[in-house]
């Protein structure tokens, strides 16, 4: 019972935050806000996958936007060539991104640490080059258009408020899936690899296979996120999945924190809305992100949310200690 209640305690705050976010349309927000919130939500879905890879396994991918691109292009090609709509493309895009992740993962994960980071970065660049030079099939540098509407039980989900709720639903599914992975024996295996790869191998864990597995799992999240992006923007092109978007995804997960469930949510919202709230141009934004990243690495190595949680725990401990010493003084008198 205790074992079950404890992990559930980690999920509840996320579900509460998502429930509150789902109520946002009731406050009649501006369409600009809703549009940016949808973009942030789509990123957060990919971030939950990245948090499994980075937070649980300790592997950082710098080509994750390319896997989002695989999902987006799969959706666009399925719609164009096979007339398969949104719901049909979700599983196919997830599987395609997982297959591509496996193809990159098998050679890349033979190396570790910064070599893997460089290889995933190179993969991101390579995919952009392939898409840019893919001729009529990939739409070359111009990209592809999406025409199909998104519907559910005959209801059009394209209006901004409904698409926002759809994205919130997918973020919730991603958070729950991520929570289930973290709290499964598989998640514990991944954490064992993260903490001490050699010890994990000595215990009989197939380290290589599990690392590739984690990359594949994170690919599924990225693929689903790509489908939502394609259907939201209605036009995709290679530039959207190049190196900078990948760096931003890594930045979001590092700032928010990859090990706690609230981390991807906080990172995605912060990085997406900070330039908007502070009215920063891209150069100022990049300076701010850089400063934030250095500050997080130096002072909050597990991310903002873990830092806040640690700070809160420290405050509770200090206040309890103060209360205890106060009680002791009282008793002495």
């Amino acid at each position: 019972m205790i074992k079950f209640a404890s992990p559930l305690r980690a999920l509840i705050p996320v579900l509460v935050v998502l429930l509150l976010l789902a109520l946002v349309p009731l406050m009649s927000p501006s369409n600009r806000f809703l549009s940016l919130a949808i973009s942030a939500g789509i990123n957060i879905i990919a971030l939950y996958g990245l948090s499994v890879l980075f937070g649980q396994t300790g592997i950082l991918s710098m080509g994750h936007a390319a896997l989002v691109g695989v999902g987006a292009y799969t959706a666009a090609l399925l719609a164009r060539d096979f007339d398969i709509g949104f719901w049909g493309s979700i599983p196919v895009a997830g599987v395609m991104a997982a297959i591509v992740a496996a193809v990159i993962g098998i050679p890349s994960l033979r190396v570790s640490g910064h070599h893997f980071v460089i290889m995933t970065f190179a993969f991101g660049q390579l995919l952009t080059i392939i898409l840019t030079n893919g001729g009529e099939y990939t739409g070359a540098a111009t990209g592809l258009d999406m025409q199909q509407p998104v519907t559910m039980f005959g209801i059009a989900l394209d209006p901004l408020e409904r698409f926002y709720l759809l994205v919130i639903a997918f973020v919730t599914i991603s958070a729950v899936a991520s929570w289930a992975i973290i709290n499964s024996s598989y998640g514990r295996t991944l954490r064992a690899i993260r903490e001490n790869e050699k010890l994990a191998a000595a215990l009989g864990i197939n380290v290589g296979r599990h690392k590739i597995g984690a990359f594949i799992v994170s690919g599924v999240f990225a693929g689903v996120s790509g489908v939502l992006l394609a259907y939201f923007l209605r036009h995709i092109s290679p530039g959207q999945f190049a190196s900078f978007p990948s760096i931003y995804l890594a930045l979001m997960v590092m700032i928010g924190g990859a090990r706690l469930l609230l981390g991807p949510l906080a990172g995605g919202i912060l990085v997406s809305f900070l330039p908007e709230v502070l009215n920063l141009d891209p150069v100022q934004s990049r300076i701010l992100y850089g400063v934030c990243l250095i500050a997080v690495i130096l002072f909050l190595p597990n991310g903002l949310i873990a830092g806040i949680a640690d700070g809160w725990a420290w405050l509770v401990k200090v206040s309890k200690r103060a209360q205890a010493s106060g009680d002791a003084r009282e008793a002495t008198r």
């Binding site: 501006s30 369409n31 600009r32 806000f33 809703l34 549009s35 940016l36 973009s39 901004l160 939201f232 923007l233 959207q240 997406s272 330039p275 141009d281 891209p282 934004s285």
Partner: peptide, 13 residues
Amino acid sequence: RTDIATAIAATQE
């Protein structure tokens, strides 16, 4: 901001 998500949000607005 030379960013497609911002361009879309601006157009919606």
